[in-house]
């Protein structure tokens, strides 16, 4: 079972790192939201899954408490992260930030 934990931790570390790099490398705010949201959500889910497996292996009152709390944290991240990034992207567009090298901008045309 500990091999599974190490695998989850490694996947989480790799994809969270990818999110941080994407945040630095991409050219404008929308593409940065792309990279940062997708990668950190995926990576954090695996990091937290490692803790869920750890709690399940340990069992007992403390182990079950760990599983419940970590699983709830996972659900919160999965539900709130895309919503938050959607709010930020919409705010950026309303504040007048143009997408970098956009071939089409239907939202601008609507106004």
């Amino acid at each position: 079972m500990s091999a599974l934990i190490y695998a989850f931790l490694a996947i989480g570390a790799v994809f969270n790192g990818l999110g941080a790099v994407a945040l630095l490398r991409f050219p404008d705010v929308y593409t940065r939201i792309h990279g940062a949201t997708k990668c950190t959500t995926f990576g954090s889910i695996f990091s937290i899954l490692a803790v869920v497996v750890h709690g399940a292996v340990r069992g007992g009152g403390d182990g079950i408490g760990m599983v419940i709390r970590a699983a709830l944290a996972l659900v919160f991240l999965l539900l709130t992260n895309p919503t938050g990034s959607h709010a930020l992207a919409r705010a950026a567009h309303r504040a007048g930030i143009k997408p970098f090298q956009a071939v089409v901008d239907r939202l601008e045309e609507r106004k």
């Binding site: 989480g12 969270n16 999110g19 941080a20 945040l23 705010v29 940065r32 939201i33 940062a36 949201t37 950190t40 959500t41 990576g43 954090s44 990091s47 937290i48 803790v51 709390r69 970590a70 944290a73 919160f76 991240l77 992260n81 938050g84 990034s85 930020l88 705010a91 950026a92 504040a95 930030i97």
Partner: peptide, 21 residues
């Protein structure tokens, strides 16, 4: 821009939750 900073802060928040767990 301020939006870039907000995105960075949001990303850090996600990482901090994972770190705390």
């Amino acid at each position: 821009t301020a939006a870039d900073r907000a995105v960075a802060l949001d990303t850090i928040n996600t990482l901090v939750v994972a770190i705390m767990v």
